[in-house]
Amino acid sequence: MAVATPAAPGISVERPTFEIVPRKGLPIVALVLIGVVVAIARDSRWGLVFCHIVGGGLWTGIDLFVGFVIGPIIGRMSIPARIEFSTRFMPKMLLIMPTIVTMTLAAGFQLARQDAFLDTSNPRHAWVVASFFVVGVMATIALAYLEPANVAVLFELRKAQPDGRVIEKLMKRFVYTAGITGVMQVVTLIIMTRLVS
């Protein structure tokens, strides 16, 4: 997930009021996570495939679309427009991304178990381990580097006088990692299609 925000120090533009974590979205997140737990507990093949395909498709699609389409567009917007977009967009991403990532990984692990891909003697085991590695790289970048920046930007935007330099510094993280995330997502697509073909 990548967005660009203001660059000028000491921003004083109109900003919409916003919640850092949109509370209205929490019941939907809870519902999705309960659905994943139920699919795992019932060993429901359709439920697990649904969670993995829907979650994985959204995760890859959002990452690539935001990183390579939305991000550069926001970068060229005026500062007030960037602020308005970011204050509406980033809180939603804070709920959406961890939810679809958890949904995809939890369901995917169960599918790998059901299909015996976790068995070290399975000829496709190496592909699963490769996907673990790719997910590990993406998770480390997302959780240790991008998510803290996302939350910090939202706290900065809530200040009466947000510091543009702080926001610019934090948002550069998204630019630096967009390429790595993009490559990892394409590798994920290759691994997943190889696994099931």
Binding site: L143, A144, E147, P148, A149, V151, A152, F155, E156, D163, V166, L170
Partner: peptide
């Protein structure tokens, strides 16, 4: 334990 510290530290250092 680790991820919350990373998030909280990144937020707090600019406050």
């Amino acid at each position: 334990l680790n991820v919350p510290v990373l998030i909280a530290f990144t937020v707090a250092r600019f406050q």
